[in-house]
C-alpha cells in the first residue's frame, strides 16, 4: 500500500538518476500513483533530466503502470531529457512488445548498457 514511504531506490551515476523499484509487483493503483509522483518530482528537479529506470526486481506490472511510464516519458521528452529502461524480465518485455511500447521506449538489457547510451 502507498503509506508515504518511498517505493523506489534512487541513486546518482554522474548526471544520470538511476531508479529501481522496491516492489516486485507494480499492480496496485495507489502504489502506481505514488511511484509516478515520486519520479515526477525527480524529473522536476532537473532542467534536462537523464533518467534510467531499472526493472531488476519486477515480476508483474499492469497497464496502469505502463500508463505511468508513458506519462513519465512524455514529461522527460517535454523537458528535452532522456529516459532509458533496463533489466526487464522476459515475460514483462513481452508485455512491452504486445503493446508496441518497445518502439516508444529505449530499452537496454543491463544498467551498464543503458548508462553508456546517454548522449
Amino acid at each position: 500500500m502507498a503509506d508515504g514511504e518511498s517505493r523506489l531506490r534512487i541513486r546518482r551515476d554522474g548526471d544520470v538518476t538511476v531508479v529501481e523499484f522496491i516492489d516486485r509487483n507494480i499492480l496496485d493503483e495507489a502504489n502506481i500513483q505514488a511511484i509516478g509522483d515520486e519520479i515526477t518530482s525527480l524529473i522536476n528537479e532537473s532542467d534536462k533530466p537523464m533518467l534510467l529506470i531499472s526493472f531488476a526486481n519486477v515480476d508483474h506490472l499492469s497497464s496502469a503502470a505502463l500508463g505511468t511510464l508513458i506519462t513519465i516519458n512524455n514529461r522527460v521528452r517535454d523537458k528535452g531529457g532522456q529516459l532509458r529502461l533496463a533489466n526487464i524480465d522476459a515475460q514483462i518485455y513481452e508485455v512491452f512488445v504486445i503493446t508496441r511500447l518497445n518502439k516508444l521506449f529505449e530499452i537496454h538489457e543491463t544498467t551498464e548498457d543503458a548508462l553508456s547510451s546517454f548522449k
Binding site: 497497464s63 496502469a64 505502463l66 508513458i70 506519462t71 512524455n74 504486445i98 503493446t99 508496441r100 511500447l101
Partner: peptide
C-alpha cells in the same frame, strides 16, 4: 487501438488489449 502510432503516447487504454492477448 492503443498500438496505433497516434495512440502510443496515450497513457491509458491497454488493459483490454492485454486481456485479449
Amino acid at each position: 487501438d492503443p498500438t496505433l502510432d497516434e495512440n502510443l503516447t496515450n497513457p491509458s487504454g491497454r488493459g483490454l488489449m492485454l486481456m485479449k492477448s
